[in-house]
């Protein structure tokens, strides 16, 4: 063992090269499928199946986009809009409520605190898909399935957000600061919104983003709840199109271009907000 640790320059070069090869191959693995999707989006229906998959043929991207947006009275745009509304408002409210709850659990002492926290933690371990069917049964009692609210309301709840918010509030909001605010006569709720919320910003952005992704990716709940396709999120819409490809072959182009366009908003959101969420990501694991 001891001779390995000599760290000769030659050995260093060898391990550096090996490391870069692993990174290079991994990059291909992760990015080639997306590259293929992009290339596929630029091709006409004939060329999609007749030309090499990983390189351009005639550049038809904008015609494809125009056709996609026009197809079926622009239902694709409707789906994208639905996804954006479900995900952004759901994540916004969800983050706010999770932050308030986690903050209270971290910063106040009251009976039942641990019970509430443990119940919420238990909620983290309950698979969301196990809730989809009973939620459908409950909403059908009120004739409320196949509505916007049947998908929106259940998406707001984020037990993991509460968990993250509690850890972050405990670590980043000092008790002395709250005491000082109290001495200044500020109310507890006002202190939360004016002072503590700011200190918790990295955690809040993290919670928001991950809940946004969770809602954007949600499939089972809309699949079970919705029949009216004007209420579909884009994932469910593309799924139904994809399952019709065998009957309506021309729809394949729309599946490819639609899939490509639908991942762009999330990639942009992650890239532009990365300085926030990268700090918050590790918080859940470091106790």
């Amino acid at each position: 063992m001891s001779q390995i640790s000599a760290g000769a320059p030659k050995e260093k070069l060898a391990s550096r090269t090996a490391a870069m090869i692993v990174m290079g191959i991994s990059t291909l693995y992760f990015l080639v499928p997306i590259w293929w999707l992009f290339i596929g989006s630029t091709k006409s229906r004939e060329q999609f199946s007749s030309t090499a998959g990983l390189w351009f043929a005639d550049f038809n991207l904008f015609t494809n986009i125009a056709d996609l947006f026009a197809y079926n009275d622009g239902v694709y745009l409707r789906w994208m809009l639905n996804s954006i509304v479900y995900a952004s408002f759901g994540a916004l409210l969800g983050t706010l409520f999770a932050a308030m709850c986690g903050y209270a659990l971290a910063k106040y002492r009251f009976p039942g605190r641990e019970l509430i926290f443990n119940t919420v933690l238990g909620g983290v371990l309950v698979p969301a898909t196990a809730l989809a069917l009973p939620l459908f049964l409950i909403f059908s009692q009120f004739n409320a399935t196949n509505t916007f609210w049947s998908v929106f309301l259940p998406s707001i709840v984020s037990p993991f957000g509460v968990y993250l918010a509690r850890i972050f509030a405990a670590a980043s909001v000092p008790d002395e600061l709250l005491e000082a605010a109290r001495l200044d006569g500020a109310g507890e709720v006002r202190t939360f919104f004016s002072v503590s919320r700011r200190l918790m910003t990295p955690a809040l952005v993290t919670i928001f983003l991950f809940q946004f992704v969770a809602i954007w990716n949600n499939f089972f709940l809309p699949l079970i709840m919705l029949r009216d396709q004007t209420l579909f999120p884009v994932t469910l819409g593309l799924y139904t199109w994809n399952s019709q490809v065998n009957q309506i072959p021309e729809i394949r182009t729309f599946v490819i271009i639609g899939a490509f366009l639908s991942i762009i908003p999330l990639i942009i959101a992650f890239l532009s907000l990365q300085r926030f969420w990268r700090g918050g990501l590790g918080a859940g694991s470091v106790k």
């Binding site: 992760f30 997306i34 990716n217 499939f219 991942i263 992650f270 990365q274």
Partner: peptide, 17 residues
Amino acid sequence: LAFFVPYAVPGVIAAIM
């Protein structure tokens, strides 16, 4: 970033691709 990009792709879309 390159390794993280697939996380932005929903399971349904990834499966179609």
